[in-house]
Design a protein around this nucleic acid. Structure first.
Length: 188
DNA sequence: CATGGGATTGACT
DNA sequence: GTCAATCCCATGC
């Protein structure tokens, strides 16, 4: 995907990422779940303004925002909207496509549905690390590729975001309808 | 400088 | 269903 894809409303970006492919080296997966975050709402890290932590979020669209969650996990986002606006789409789950043996090794799990069914799991499976923060998603080793085909009906489900305590009412979570590879709790 | 709180996961009851 | 692990950063004194 090129820069123009990311330089749009972050909800549109998050929704359009469903069905695209996230790849890092030999491992790749179909994006089946995303969430949008925008500086205008308090659950977004960028809500506090420009700080050392949020610098990436305000950077150019099409770069990765990777941060540590709960002191343990790395979570990866695609930075969206024009440079200077803090917004990003969190990638929450993948359907594994390639490099499954390596994913199993990294995750210490066997079932394919357990490899990338959560934002902390998929970064571990694809070996996306904190030092990838700020890396380009349009030309670097980590890349997002367009949908190969139209999404199967019934398409995309929209629901509230997960694990946040503010702006909980916004339906900014997007999932591939009926996918077994989304994180819990599954959307209705 | 001290402190509180997560965009989570996996183990356990 | 409950709960601990673990650490960076934003905030406030």
């Amino acid at each position: 995907m090129n820069r123009a894809f990311y330089e749009r409303d972050v909800c549109a970006v998050a929704e359009d990422l469903i069905g695209c492919v996230l790849r890092n080296g030999p491992c790749a997966g179909l994006i089946v779940e995303t969430e949008a975050y925008h500086e205008s709402e308090p659950s977004c890290h960028a809500f506090v303004g420009l700080t050392a932590r949020t610098r990436t979020l305000f950077g150019p669209p099409g770069i990765a925002y990777v941060y540590r969650s709960y002191g343990i996990h790395a979570l990866v986002n695609a930075v969206a909207e024009p440079e200077g606006i803090g917004a990003a789409a969190l990638i929450r789950a993948l359907e594994p496509i390639e490099g499954i043996a390596l994913m199993r090794e990294r995750r210490g799990a066997e079932a394919v549905a357990d490899l990338c069914s959560g934002p902390g799991k998929l970064t571990q499976a694809l070996a996306i690390r904190l030092d990838d923060n700020g890396a380009s998603l349009t030309g670097g080793p980590i890349e997002i590729l367009p949908r190969r085909a139209a999404l199967p009906a019934p398409g995309i489900v929209r629901s509230v975001r997960i694990g946040i305590t503010k702006a909980v009412e916004l339906e900014w979570r997007f999932s591939l309808a009926g996918s077994r590879f989304v994180s819990r709790p599954r959307p209705r």
